[in-house]
Nucleic acid binder design. Structure first.
Length: 262
DNA sequence: ATGTCAGTCGTAGACTGA
């Protein structure tokens, strides 16, 4: 499939263990047939590349034991550009994968959660965002268009959670990460979902497992696609597919799907 | 503080992270 003159579908899904969610992911791939799927929270060193190859997807995965882990599946060849976020040689978390697929820079991120606020985890999150911002500045000057997708672990605005009061003590809602997210938009990147649905409340990508959060739609929008200007003008649709969150044994996140007419 | 789920270590259930 060529991206020239066609519609490309790119999806992102934090699966909370690829081993526990393999059936969900393969079933979803067969029904939705995205060109590219970004996965986060693989949670283990084993990655079932064969299962995806059988469905026509090439895969590149960055994994570690027990935690984190990101992968990109694609029906077109993937050129791996970087498997780590520049700026801290000591950072060994599997949270970043930069690739080139059909002349688009596709970057998959699993941004640190950072809870609780004020902790070492929180400082790591902010530093990680600063490092990402530096890359995003650098990418602006290159020819190739950029899509950054994944679990940002940031609730951008009050409209992106069911009730701000219940998130004010959470790292995902603090002014510092939210400010950094706004800075990224200020660099010229477009939040694909919010741009197409500027006032739509109750649109979430994550719901806690506790207290029937999903059935009450008490969630947050933390999985995002950011597009550089040449891709933003080709944005056709961006939707959240709540289907997989309603299945038995779901991930706490559900897929977000963006459509670009290139 | 609570709630639930997945992985680890190591064979039960406490622990960590989310």
């Amino acid at each position: 499939m060529s991206y020239h003159g066609g519609v490309v579908i790119i999806a992102s899904w934090n699966v909370n263990s690829i081993r526990a969610r393999l059936e969900h992911v393969t079933t979803w791939l067969k029904s939705r047939q995205p060109d590219v799927l970004l996965l986060q929270e693989l949670k283990g060193t084993e990655f079932p590349a064969d299962a995806f190859r059988d469905l026509g997807y090439e895969a590149v995965a960055v994994t570690q034991k027990a935690y984190n882990g990101v992968a990109i599946l694609s029906r077109s060849p993937i050129k791996t550009v970087s498997t780590a976020l520049m700026g801290d040689e000591a950072d060994s978390h599997a949270r970043f994968l930069e690739t080139e697929v059909n002349h688009i820079r596709i970057v998959n991120i699993y941004l640190p959660n950072g809870n609780p606020p004020g902790s070492e985890n929180f400082a790591y999150k902010l530093a990680w965002m600063d490092r990402l911002e530096r890359r995003m500045r650098a990418w602006r000057t290159s020819e190739i268009p950029v899509l950054i997708g994944g679990d940002f672990n940031v609730i951008p605005e009050d409209i992106d959670c069911h009730k701000p009061a219940s998130w004010i003590h959470d790292a995902l809602f603090q002014p510092e990460p939210r400010g950094r997210f706004r800075t990224m938009l200020g660099l010229g990147y477009t939040d694909a979902f919010r741009t197409l649905h500027p006032t739509e409340a109750g649109q979430f990508t994550f719901w806690d497992y506790f207290r029937q959060a999903f059935s009450h739609n008490r969630g947050i929008r933390i999985d995002h696609f950011l597009l550089s200007p040449p891709l933003a003008v080709k944005l056709v649709s961006c939707v959240i597919d709540k289907g997989p969150r309603a299945l038995e044994k779901p991930s706490d996140h559900t897929p977000i799907v963006v459509e670009l007419d290139l």
